[in-house]
């Protein structure tokens, strides 16, 4: 198991966001993390990304406890994150955004950069080539030098994917990549997710609300409700689980009416 979440509990001054969540993710798999709003999905991702530190428990990736590292060290450990609300560098071009994904593969500091000499010049051309590969993979050629803020939302989301892929992560955390996408954009997204899985072999943990996407793409599903894991397994069985339906939709009217008597 390449990623394991062990008994993660997260509390904010009396409010318990996660209580004792444990599961593991297999190398190269696409695992979906689902649950109703406020179930703690994004909080759990934040525990992995270094933004929150769990009150108890830990998250280990390839044997390293990433739940105790600051965000930039988590990135250095080979974990990339795609945010729910894109979180791109809005005033910069698509190319610059993707080159920023290459940051941790580059070395030049402030001095070398000021002079644009030696290592700085060499790595700018070398990494530009890598960035172009990502641009080609995601078919972003037309927007290469456009400022990100001027692009349609669906394209911005792809730039977010590109920035994460450019990091060459071994674990990709996706936080609702399909929100705000139309049918066609979702189909594109699905195609890219499958290509990332099959061509790059990247392990993915994926928060998603679109159950059709989850049912078709995910190999495993983990369901959270009120900060607790309520189900885990292959999508066919998990999505039919009555407890999952209850978490999402509430109890059926008849059952509820019948319950007290």
């Amino acid at each position: 198991m390449v990623l394991s979440v062990d008994e993660v509990t997260l509390e904010f001054a009396g409010l318990r966001a996660l209580s004792g969540v444990s599961f593991a993710v297999e190398q190269g798999s696409l695992t979906a993390l689902v649950g109703p709003n406020g179930a703690g999905k994004t909080s759990l991702l934040n525990c992995m990304g270094g933004f929150y530190t769990p009150t108890r428990g830990r998250v280990t990736f390839e044997g390293a406890a990433i739940s105790e590292l600051p965000p930039h060290r988590v990135a250095a450990a080979g974990v990339a994150r795609i945010f729910q609300f894109v979180e791109l560098f809005r005033h910069m071009t698509v190319l610059d955004n993707i080159l920023l994904g290459r940051h941790r593969h580059m070395r030049a500091g402030v001095l070398a950069g000021s002079l644009f000499w030696g290592v700085s010049r060499r790595e700018e051309t070398r990494e530009r080539r890598r960035a172009e590969e990502v641009i080609e993979f995601l078919e972003l050629e037309r927007s290469r030098k456009e400022p990100v803020a001027s692009l349609p939302f669906g394209v911005q989301k792809l730039v977010g994917v590109g920035r994460a892929l450019a990091m060459e992560p071994r674990l990709l955390l996706l936080d609702e990549p399909s929100t705000g996408m139309n049918r066609e954009e979702k189909e594109n997204l699905a195609r890219f997710l499958l290509r990332i899985k099959h061509e790059l072999g990247t392990t993915m943990l994926w928060i998603e609300h679109d159950m059709e996407l989850v049912g078709d793409l995910a190999e495993r599903v983990v369901v959270l409700d009120f900060g607790q894991k309520i189900a885990e397994g292959p999508p066919d069985t998990v999505l039919r689980d009555p407890r999952v339906a209850e978490a999402y939709l509430g109890r059926a009217w008849d059952a509820q009416k019948g319950a007290p008597s």
């Binding site: 990135a75 979180e87 560098f89 610059d96 920023l100 994904g101 941790r104 500091g109 950069g113």
Partner: peptide, 28 residues
């Protein structure tokens, strides 16, 4: 020169979105 190289890009990333800058591995 800074604007077209790693350090300047990292600065601009922090200006635009410091949380995302940290998540791509920039020591903010």
């Amino acid at each position: 020169n800074l604007q077209r190289s790693r350090a300047g890009r990292a600065w601009m990333a922090i200006r635009d979105r410091d949380v995302a800058a940290a998540s791509v591995g920039i020591d903010v």
